[in-house]
């Protein structure tokens, strides 16, 4: 079998641009997912039964259905409801953020619940409100503990975002498919795509490690 390095070289600029888009969509999704997840996890810890119930439904639905199906729902089913086409970028971002939000909510909940309940009691017994105690005592401690699982979530999102290629959104995987359609060099291109994903996830894993250590020494 011939291994054509030239093809990879020629395809590289296009693939790297695609990788940029993969990073962009993952970062935006995890960023929005963080906001959603933080909100949902706090809602699920409050006393408001209806909100708590809705939060649980959201998390269960998202975690219990494939991301691919969620992307289809936003891209194909949503237009049928609102009577208007949905832009691929919008569909990709919203599906991925809503998905990420559910996982982040679980990460937050785990982080918050891992904090000894004596901390809440100490805060409350000093006269601070539930929210003040949450904000100044529980959350700062929880944040430190959830850095590693959040890093994992970002890595998972980098890889799972490849699924938005099915709606024609041109991130790294889709770029690879398009180049192969033109060159038939599937081995070279898929190998290059795989290595680019590996490089991205490797860098994120290392960054997470650095962040973890920094938070650990400064307390």
């Amino acid at each position: 079998m011939d291994f054509n390095v030239e093809i990879i070289k020629n395809a590289l600029p296009l693939l790297l641009a695609g990788a940029g888009i993969t990073i962009e969509i993952s970062a935006i999704s995890v960023g929005l997912g963080l906001a959603i997840g933080c909100l949902v996890s706090i809602i699920r810890l409050t006393q408001f039964r209806l909100l708590r119930y809705l939060g649980n439904v959201y998390v269960d639905f998202i975690r219990g259905t494939p991301l691919l199906v969620q992307i289809f729902l936003v891209y194909f089913a949503l237009p049928a409801i609102i009577g208007q086409r949905v832009d691929a970028f919008f569909a990709a971002i919203s599906a991925c953020s809503i998905n990420s939000g559910a996982y982040v909510a679980e990460i937050f909940r785990g982080g918050i619940q891992s904090i000894d309940k004596g901390q809440m009691e100490a805060g409350r017994s000093l006269g601070m409100s539930w929210w003040q105690t949450m904000r100044y005592i529980i959350l700062p401690q929880a944040f430190k503990r959830i850095i590693p699982p959040l890093g994992n979530e970002f890595i998972a999102m980098l890889k799972d975002s490849s699924l938005v290629s099915v709606i024609g959104f041109e991130e790294l995987t889709r770029r690879g498919q398009l180049i192969i359609a033109r060159t038939y060099a599937s081995f070279e291109i898929w190998l290059a795509v795989a290595l680019i994903y590996l490089l991205m996830t490797f860098v994120v894993a290392r960054l997470t490690g650095v962040l973890e250590r920094r938070f650990d020494t400064s307390k």
């Binding site: 004596g118 901390q119 006269g127």
Partner: peptide, 16 residues
């Protein structure tokens, strides 16, 4: 609670 201080068996200081 503002007017009553409480001391716990396990201290419950804020470690951060």
């Amino acid at each position: 609670r503002k007017e009553i201080g409480m001391v716990f068996q396990r201290f419950n200081l804020f470690p951060h």
